[in-house]
Design a binder for these strands. Structure first.
Lengths: 218, 218
DNA sequence: TATATTTATTAGGCAAGACTAATTTTTCAC
DNA sequence: GTGAAAAATTAGTCTTGCCTAATAAATATA
């Protein structure tokens, strides 16, 4: 069992690793957690003792199998709760993150799996980040944006980049939500506007700015 | 804002008060929280400073308006989360409590109200305890048991007392769940068995033990 | 290579929240 | 009303997780 603080360290280290940082240093961790490097050194010692990570000054920090599994579970819970808050409780994109930071620490053996099932096994969270599966596998991060879909290609909305009310309202008006299928009909060279088809309904034209703020997949 | 520990004290004090304890003492609180009276005295000092409660040795502990509101919100969240875990995630009666102990501390202004709405404004939690409303009103605790319903009377299942798999399985077999309407047809004097009607379907006979373990309302 | 700068680590402290071991107050029984 | 028991309080510690300041080590730069 880990404390809340330990869990936050493991998650931060996991995320730094996922971000492709080749060497994870105390300073990098302290920046991620917004605390003091001296505190990080303390905690690293503790986590090494608990066999949740390894630390060599030359190689930086590496999570052990055990440490990584815990981190993955936290990330899994975080993203599942985000989906829950957005889809079931109707929260907005920006509000879900801080609540998920709290919910991710709720402990119970089956919690993640039951939540996953209840939500219909979603693949991405509302920010377009992939939700790790029960076995720990994490899908490739698709951060493809509508603007990148070739003419004739189709995709599904997985998230938005811009979360301003203006954009979200516009999406609502166009009846675009998470999961909406979009087919790229034509790209206008002049201003990079794109003509798209939503599901089986009519085609619409949206601007380049719009097309770059819609995260899609497939 | 309160710490997790402060919230647990407020909740414990609120519950002791609801249980009808006329004078709430440090010892009573320490028993409820399973900790040391000395720790309680420390914390009471802190909570008095924060104006969340008053403490006079002669009168015991009293929550202030502010303290009570916080306590009620925690209880509200606790019971709503219990309903969520049971109804949406399919957890069993006994499993939900400890998870709700964690979930009740998740903070966000609208959380309780959104959850309440999502769950359809339930009145009772799976243990038959009333869920405080958004305005802080708490329904009367109905702990009426099926056996107490007079002949001809009808009621709805709000909870079970016995949570053994055997009982729960039997309930399933009879197709009785939370919300099931039951009409009392007849009480057999010989062994206190009761003949009941479930919704609009046939009548069934259940034992006295059964009838004393089903918490109902109305 | 020697120096300057950045990074890591150690040492010493602090606040929260708990504990144990006195000590003081209250309460109860006689 | 007095002594015994129970309850409340105080004093002093401990652990966790953080902090600052000082020192040591590594890296970068002239």
């Amino acid at each position: 069992m880990q404390t809340l603080s330990e869990e936050n360290y493991l998650k931060a280290i996991y995320n730094l690793d996922k971000q492709g940082l080749k060497k994870i240093t105390p300073t990098a961790i302290s920046e991620a957690l917004n605390n003091n490097p001296a505190s990080v050194v303390d905690m690293l010692r503790k986590l090494v003792e608990k066999k949740l990570l390894q630390y060599e000054k030359s190689k930086g920090v590496k999570l052990t199998e055990k440490g990584r599994n815990i981190a993955i579970l936290i990330v899994r819970k975080h993203r599942l709760w985000e989906v829950f808050l957005l889809e079931k409780l109707g929260y907005g994109w920006e509000e879900v993150h801080e609540m998920a930071e709290q919910l991710e620490h709720v402990q119970h053996a089956e919690l993640a799996d039951r939540l996953d099932k209840f939500l219909g096994f979603p693949e991405y969270d509302p920010h377009g980040d992939p939700i790790p599966k029960a076995n720990g596998e994490t899908a490739v991060t698709y951060k493809t944006v509508l603007a990148e879909i070739p003419e004739g290609g189709s995709c599904r909305v997985v998230a938005v980049k811009d979360t301003s009310p203006a954009f979200l309202q516009y999406l609502k008006k166009l009846d675009i939500g998470i999961g909406t299928k979009i087919t790229m009909i034509e790209k206008i060279p002049f201003d990079s506007s794109v003509i798209i088809k939503l599901g089986k309904s009519n085609t619409t034209t949206v601007s380049r700015v719009f097309a770059e703020n819609l995260v899609v997949h497939e």
